[in-house]
Nucleic acid binder design. Structure first.
Lengths: 204, 204
DNA sequence: GTCTATAAAGAGATAGAC
DNA sequence: GTCTATCTCTTTATAGAC
């Protein structure tokens, strides 16, 4: 029989820890801040997760595990290549817009601890070969022009992720720090990026 | 008359600080590590730069100031639009390959302290309008197809920067952590990205 | 200018009461 | 399970000798 109090608290901790870690990163995050945001004290954090490191790993795995499967969806759907790519780009940019700190958080942490990342990817059962072979298939069938599938994947991710990762810079340089026009611009990019990518894979 | 010892030491500090800050970021960097790398002790760091914050700001300004003018080169050259873009992409990817921690460092720090960034950009005299109006001119002249110049700029930067920023992830997922094949791939991308971008701005 | 020694504050982690 | 109080170690920063 599950203890209601425990579950509530653990959820509150995880939620608060995700907020703080994703914004500040492992190095910048403070256990005190997480405790405050969860409405509890530091001691209780250590009761649920022995150390900051363990709490961080729980958060990183959770966040990483939510973002990655989206990418794999490109491989498994039954739709046409145009539809698959379109749906992915639209959906992915949407997720990132709602979590604008996520891209830079992941970039930060994979630089800080690449070995942890490597181990996690192995555990995760992520299979990039599936996407690669899907694209190869489409090329062999003459549906899209021949190119290195890795370039295609990386182009899609670059165009979708970078403008969110660089939000503070773009916001100042192009939008005079006005959030609304930045958001409108990114919203439009769902279409722009889609067209841009589809245009690039057409058989000439 | 300049004191040789002082200049040498200050240079050693700046060089060491750049190495450490760019890799670890403000939050992850330690004054002790910078001192060690410079071959001096912590007290001397504080003698030259009163605080960690001041040392960090000196480094960030310097690094940011070296990277940004490159982008402005797109606006000022007299060559054709194809040549300008080609030269920029090749040169920019080259710089980033030699400084693979730079993109993530800048992304990290602009999230940590966006106001410092905003102030710096104002001081820097960076003029994005110049690039934008250059692209508008090319569109009006019918040299490239009409689009939002900001999208074009962001696409170029995304395709050039993101694959370096995500190096640890790409390295594991696509290259089994083999640095050589990763580097070879990025080297090839100088051409790939150039073609990709040029293809996208052609009049259809 | 450069060093050693140390102050002062910060931050993760634990002890023990309730 | 949750809290207060505290320990311990780290880290920035300064004092003062040379």
């Amino acid at each position: 029989m599950t203890n209601i109090k425990k579950d509530n608290t653990e959820e509150k901790i995880l939620s608060a820890a995700q907020n703080v870690f994703v914004r500040k990163g492992m190095d910048g995050a403070r256990m005190q801040e997480i405790a405050d945001e969860a409405g509890i004290n530091k001691a209780l954090l250590h009761y649920y997760f022995r150390s900051k490191q363990q709490l961080f790993e729980a958060i990183f795995k959770s966040v990483f595990g939510k973002i990655m499967p989206n990418i794999m969806l490109m491989a498994t759907s039954e739709k046409s290549i145009e539809e698959k790519l379109g749906a992915f780009i639209e959906n992915y940019i949407d997720i990132l817009m709602k979590n604008p700190f996520l891209p830079t958080f992941i970039l930060k942490e994979i630089h800080r601890d690449p070995e942890f990342l490597a181990g996690m990817i192995k555990e995760s059962g992520l299979q990039p070969e599936l996407i690669i072979s899907m694209f190869k298939q489409e090329m062999d069938n003459g549906n899209i022009r021949k190119m290195d599938p890795r370039d295609l994947i990386i182009n899609i991710l670059s165009l979708s992720i970078f403008p969110i990762a660089a939000k503070p810079l773009m916001s100042v340089v192009f939008f005079d720090t006005d959030q609304k026009s930045y958001n409108k611009f990114i919203e439009k990019r769902k279409v722009t990026v889609k067209e841009f990518v589809l245009h690039s894979i057409l058989i000439k």
